[in-house]
Simulated scan of single mutants.
Amino acid sequence: MADSNTETANTWSLLWFRSRDDMTPFINDTAVRIRAGIMLAIPIFMAFTLWDIVFGSRWIVTGEVIKDTFELDFDNRILYMVEAVRRTYDYTVQTWLLFYALFEMLAGMSVRTAYLSPTIWLSTLLARRARPVWKPLAPKRFAWTIGASMISVCLVFFHPEKFAAAVNFIFQSQVLPTTEQYLPRWLPLVMVWVCLGFMWMETVLGFCLGCEVHALLVKLGIFQDECEACNNLDFGQPR
């Protein structure tokens, strides 16, 4: 019983980290995969939202009467007269979800801030009975940086006027327009699906593409050799 209580105490004091004495932090990849599965709900929701924005109807029919104009368009389709309004979107829920996802990406990058993440606590709880698989934090940090960048682009897409106003204020010039959407409509949709694919591979296959890119950059000498595992595309054997 005492050993069990000690193990539980160590789990909560270290969370998914191997040791506080590691010069290069190592985290439990089992918990990381569980966390990716939890966070997967956000890009799924955002993918459906952006699909509706890009490919959904831009008009809402408000009237109950649809009148035939007895005219045809160039494709010989019948033209009707209706009462309709331009569709508008409220991105409040999406914005808060994206800010939370951004917080999660940033919180996981540091040993100190990791304790602020609810999903890290939850994933640690769910992984406590599974055999830990230790992998370096540095490649994961690089992968989460990519994720944070994608989230930031989506936030700009939802609030282009606010971002443009901030940029124009910093440069004291009209760098970006404040009255129109300057990002391509397809860009955030593609990025969300890419993010969804990355997280699915992490959760289901245990394959971290961002980590592999990080390891490749270490091989090329673009990043410094932080640890032996960071310089190994296969990350070696679980420790």
Rank of each mutant, 00 (worst) to 15 (best):
M1R: 08
M1E: 15
N5G: 06
E7H: 12
E7M: 13
E7P: 00
T11Y: 11
S13P: 00
S13H: 15
L14G: 00
L14T: 05
D22W: 04
D29T: 05
A31P: 06
A31F: 07
V32F: 14
R35C: 10
G37C: 12
P43M: 07
P43G: 03
T49N: 14
L50H: 11
D52E: 15
V61D: 14
V61F: 14
E64A: 14
I66C: 09
D68P: 02
D68T: 04
T69Y: 09
L72H: 09
D73I: 09
F74W: 06
D75P: 00
D75C: 03
D75Q: 14
N76E: 10
N76T: 07
A84Q: 15
R86A: 10
R87Q: 12
T88M: 07
Y89A: 07
Y89P: 01
Y91E: 06
F103D: 11
M105S: 11
L106F: 14
A107V: 09
G108L: 14
M109I: 13
S110Q: 13
S110K: 10
R112D: 10
T113E: 05
T113I: 11
L116S: 07
S117I: 03
T119R: 02
W121S: 04
L122I: 12
S123R: 04
S123E: 04
L126V: 07
A127E: 04
R129G: 00
P132S: 10
L137W: 04
F142Q: 05
A143H: 07
G147S: 08
G147L: 08
A148D: 06
I151T: 13
S152V: 09
S152D: 01
V156A: 14
F157L: 00
H159S: 06
H159A: 05
H159G: 01
K162T: 13
F163D: 03
A164P: 01
A166G: 01
V167Y: 08
I170K: 02
Q172W: 08
Q174M: 08
V175K: 06
P177K: 05
T179C: 00
T179S: 14
T179A: 08
Q181N: 13
Q181I: 02
L183N: 03
P188Q: 07
L189C: 02
M191R: 04
V192W: 07
V192S: 02
V194F: 04
V194W: 02
M201L: 15
V204G: 01
L205D: 10
F207L: 13
L209W: 09
E212L: 14
H214T: 01
H214F: 09
H214M: 06
A215Q: 09
L216T: 08
V218E: 01
L220T: 00
G221M: 02
F223N: 00
Q224W: 03
Q224H: 08
E226Q: 03
C227K: 01
N231I: 01
D234I: 03
D234P: 00
F235W: 11
G236W: 04
R239S: 12
